[in-house]
Design a binder for these strands. Structure first.
Lengths: 405, 405
DNA sequence: CCGATTTAATTTGAGAATCAAAAAAATAAT
DNA sequence: ATTATTTTTTTGATTCTCAAATTAAATCGG
């Protein structure tokens, strides 16, 4: 009884070597073999062998040392290795309330083309949503003169409870039904590797691959938008929990029987710091001056409007408390507060940081760094693409190892 | 320039194989080679090779199949492998407020002897505490007729902020000074492998090796005692955070500007559900009936005392909120509420579980199981011993691999 | 301009860990 | 006794990796 595809221990080892090299190259952009050896702890001989294989497979390329390094350094010049962008085209897709954003990148991470397709309604039946996704992808491909068949893989990011290991959506604000097997649905329309993930996790991925978490193996990303999301990276992996619905930072409770949240429960952090929560309170301001957007509210506060100020102040204090709790629980190296708009301007103020500091368990060791990162509107799609790239990468390596047999 | 102790990739692989076999044997108690192969995914050939080595090293033994398995099963009978208890003697030591508990176990986990030595004062200078620990260990060894030199390793568990990777104590309620290198201090008195850990993490270890977390790779242990502690096991490893001071569940904030905690901050969960918090409130009861212990308070509540009832009810609600937050963040497979006394009787009631359920993000998937586990007073020491056993195990394997070269 | 020096990459040969398949061992069934 | 069955061990091959030696490609110094 031959055991065919049970991963052998040696196979795993081999895979991990290749994976490591590829990841190192991706993390560094362009890096010489000798530095890969240093970085990964492998011997130069092994790096040579592996990179030869990756070169042959067309996944990486040698970068000719552009300019003479003029600075007198003797010895054989190092030849850097970089990813071959044209090895694959990969799509990241974000389903938002009012539009679907698509971004196509190459294997190296270069953005080829993006597209935003408005949605007429925010919540749809699964089939309807799939059609919309496919349409958005097609439009994007057409715009960039890319064949749909050239897409090696894609990832769809959506708000809600997603079990990424199964491409399964327990619940999403974009879907009218619960418990949808999005992977299967999309698979009927598209013939490429398909992944579905929670959007906050995708931002974490984006930070890890392209952003401020590039060289960090353990960090936490917090997104503030309509709701509040969190992505946790532990040991270079996204932490997901058993059912795939962990890291629901926005729905951790910060107040017994507190404010009503869009999830129907009370006292969620989101119900104090999310967009809708602030605007809900802002409506109590005198009618004429009622701010319709966070920007207006924030401006009113800056101009000395006491009520607006107190709304933002409370949100800030709640946010500080939430941040402190995260630090007390995870003790991460780094916290990245990511967003597409300037939520940070009023939420991540020095006062909030100070308040957070005072709610963190006191230790004579430096606090985790808290940084903010404003991305463009493409943040989400970029994260989705990053995730898909990683998955496709892993698939390539796996195929490489199998083919070698 | 030969690179001597940089762990080679092959060495890691080899180590992992041996480790895996040993762990499987420990987890299963006694298990045949073929089942180890099935369990770990290795080939039977490899298991034979590895177990031969472990047998020769004296770490495991063959268990003769006791009774004829009468039930007609043909074929060569399987020979189970078990740990050799006499391979090592290991001490677990818990430093509590009023005493030091020591437990000596053998390599197989059998309890050989335990001892409790009262302490005259709860907080001491490092040197003083070390002396007390050594004295307690000596007394325990004498009681069990064990030579101090026969102890292969020990672990000291203490409440507070401990960086176990460095055996370093940022702060502990048992120490008068901060930032103590306990490992170095103890090393001057004892000549064996020494480990220092946070006590909640040790309970997690105990649950993982001997308790309800035996076959679970991801779970969370919550301890309620004087304070509230948490141990997080992710992927069969204790999660510690970067500075080694994560998982401070007791000091997560559940109320803005809330009740005063012993840590000096406000609104910590511990300040609502810890022993001292309940007794603090209970003092407001009519003087004569003031309960001096949790047991009395709990009894009063059961007898219909409204004030006592409301104290416990609020504690329960806060605890439910804390539990729900943990689930929302970690989405664990299992939560074990561990304790030496019956805190569970009033904290882990059906009402609390129900309230927790209502504060958890709603998913059409079964809730994480919440179980309670009452250990004897030896719980902590047992956890410490479990941790030390694991570490010593790993050390043995490492030595085995190195010696083979 | 040419050898000496330096650094990077590759080749070579060997060691080690694993696995598949075959063989051996130990038992039950017939 | 013979056959069937199951576990364990042995054998031989594979292959992943590494150390050391070698080759490659540059600078430096005279």
């Amino acid at each position: 009884m031959p055991q065919i595809d049970r991963p052998s221990h040696t196979g795993e080892l081999r895979e991990s070597g290749r994976q490591q090299v590829l990841e190192t190259i991706r993390a560094q952009g362009a890096i010489a073999r000798i530095d890969i050896a240093r970085e990964t702890g492998m011997s130069p001989a092994t790096v040579t062998a592996i990179s030869a294989e990756l070169l042959e497979a067309g996944l990486i390329r040698e970068v000719q040392p552009e300019a003479k390094p003029t600075t007198g350094k003797r010895g054989r010049p190092r030849v850097s290795l970089a990813l071959r962008g044209d090895a694959h085209k990969i799509a990241g897709i974000k389903v938002a309330h009012s539009s679907i954003t698509v971004l196509v990148i190459d294997f190296e991470g270069n953005e080829l083309v993006d597209h935003d397709m408005p949605l007429v309604q925010a919540r749809m039946e699964p089939e309807q949503l799939c059609n919309a996704i496919v349409t958005a992808l097609e439009q994007c491909c057409r715009k960039g003169s890319i064949g749909l068949a050239d897409i090696s893989g894609l990832c769809v990011g959506m708000a809600g409870l997603v079990d990424a290991t199964r491409n399964f959506v327990y619940w999403s604000s974009s879907l009218t039904s619960r418990n949808v097997d999005m992977g299967a649905h999309l698979g009927q329309h598209l013939n490429c590797a398909i992944f579905v993930e929670n959007d906050a996790n995708l931002v974490a991925k984006a930070e890890h691959l392209f952003g401020k978490g590039r060289d960090v193996s353990d960090f936490i990303v917090i997104t503030i938008e309509h709701g509040v999301g969190m992505g946790v990276v532990i040991d270079d992996e996204i932490y997901r929990g058993t059912r795939g619905c962990g890291a629901e930072f926005g729905h951790t409770k910060v107040q017994l029987s507190g404010a009503l949240c869009q999830c129907g429960q009370r006292g969620c952090l989101e119900a104090y710091v999310g967009d809708y929560a602030l605007l809900r309170e802002a409506r109590l301001l005198s009618d004429e001056a009622t701010p319709q957007s966070i920007g207006q509210l924030s401006a009113a506060a800056r101009e000395g409007d006491a009520l607006a100020g107190s709304i933002l102040e409370r949100a800030g204090r709640m946010f500080a408390m939430g941040l402190a709790n995260i630090i007390n629980i995870f003790d991460p190296e780094l916290i990245i507060v990511s967003g597409t708009h300037s939520s940070m301007d009023y939420l991540l103020t020095p006062q909030v940081i100070e308040e957070m500091r005072q709610s963190v368990v006191q230790v004579d060791a430096p606090l985790p760094e808290v940084v903010q990162h404003s991305w463009g509107q493409l943040m989400w799609a970029k994260g989705a693409a990053a995730y898909a790239v990683e998955k496709v990468s892993a698939q390539c390596v796996r195929r490489l190892v199998l083919d070698a047999v």
